[in-house]
Simulated scan of single mutants.
Amino acid sequence: MSDEPAPEIRYLVLGGAGFLGSYIVQALISRGDTHVAVFDLREPAQEDKIERVSYYTGDICNLDRLVDVLKETGANVVFHAVSPIHGLSDSIYQRVNVDGTKTLLEACRHPSLSGNVFKFVYTSSTGVTWRAQDIVGATEEQLPIPENGYDMYHHTKAVAEKMVLEADGDGMRTVVIRPGGMIGPRDPQLLHRLAAALAEKKHKVQIGNNTNLVDWVYAGNVADAHLAAADRLPSRKDLDANTTPHPVAGQVFIITNGTPMLQWDFSRLVWRALGASPADLDPKKATKIPRWLALFMATIAESWCKLNGGHTELTKFNVIYSTTTQWYNIDKARHALGYQPRVSLEEAAAMSAKWWKERGEKEHKARQASRRKLL
């Protein structure tokens, strides 16, 4: 075993300008880490940049660029939080989630880096095991990954997850974090959908009977789990000693807030934070559409959009997702990572709504206007 001092820890967060990635970066800086870099397709807005963080841009499928950034930053701990949003083409998910992850793993083990990277944390999703089935308090070991995922997003995340786990060992130790549905300020997907539903009075319609418990999680809590996993992966000295087995390396951890809520109760929690009155959210006043009827309506809506090139939020996926039970046992993360959710869903909803009102809505409208100009 070498008596040389441990190498200085240097972090590279891929996807660090995105939703979850920015929370990981902030968590590292907040606890006092001094060598933190971000790699993303684009730099964040100037006001979103974090002091003492180095920002690099590039394509995750560009091996040479990745190797150059890994060399320049001297990163020995890599967080891979790159992930396209939902609703894009299958080819994008294949390229980013599969090809991108493969390229990144190759870059981390590039001969020119002399084995610099010895810790690798990958952000997956609880959705990699979901096939529209009810999940009731299941553990990681009780949820095998199906041969074909429910959709291309989750299928490609599962393929990437498998590659990361297979890369564990031989000088680099890896771990996979599977977060549930996330909420928090800077959320690019959930908040605008719920805010739009509220503005369009769609919150007065409930699909299903609201008996399905669902897990959600604050993005900052997920970031905490990433840091805990990285901290508990073997050190360089332990790697050299080849100490196995290890309770974190080569493992998968489900991360939620540990407080499942009825699906429509969660939506009403966010709508209340966005300003809806209790009377306006009274479940007794909601128009309830049975699941079977909603699926029929979604089939018609999707067929119409396919023929006419339109868009609908009433999809079969959304109907099934919002009426299926999905909650998980997170004891493995509690015990092995010391994970404890520090921010409640109520607090997360309040913070998210505040951000949406102050900034999020305006930014979303600006993005929509920019896309319309391009079209």
Rank of each mutant, 00 (worst) to 15 (best):
Glu8Phe: 02
Gly21Met: 06
Ile29Ser: 07
Ile29Ala: 09
Ala37Glu: 06
Arg42Met: 12
Ala45Lys: 12
Asp48His: 15
Asp59Gln: 09
Asn62Met: 02
Asn62Trp: 01
Leu63His: 03
Val69Ile: 15
Glu72Trp: 01
His86Leu: 14
His86Glu: 10
Ser89Gln: 11
Asp90Ser: 14
Gly100Ile: 03
Cys108Thr: 13
Pro111Leu: 06
Ser112Gly: 05
Asn116Leu: 13
Val117Trp: 02
Val117Asp: 10
Val117Thr: 13
Phe120Lys: 03
Thr123Ala: 10
Arg131Phe: 08
Gln133Tyr: 12
Val136Arg: 14
Glu141Gln: 14
Gln142Pro: 03
Gln142Leu: 09
Pro144Val: 06
Ala160Leu: 07
Ala167Gln: 03
Gly169Ala: 03
Gly180Ser: 15
Gly184Ser: 07
Ala197Glu: 12
Lys204Tyr: 02
Thr211Lys: 14
Asp224Leu: 15
Arg236Trp: 13
Asp238Lys: 14
Thr243Trp: 05
Gln251His: 09
Leu262Met: 13
Arg268Met: 13
Trp271Arg: 04
Thr287Gln: 09
Ala294Asp: 00
Thr299Gly: 15
Cys305Phe: 06
Thr312Tyr: 08
Leu314Gln: 02
Asn318Cys: 06
Ile320Gln: 10
Arg334Asp: 02
Leu337Phe: 02
Leu345Ile: 09
Glu346Gln: 14
Ala353Pro: 04
Gly360Cys: 10
Gln368Phe: 00
Arg372Asn: 12
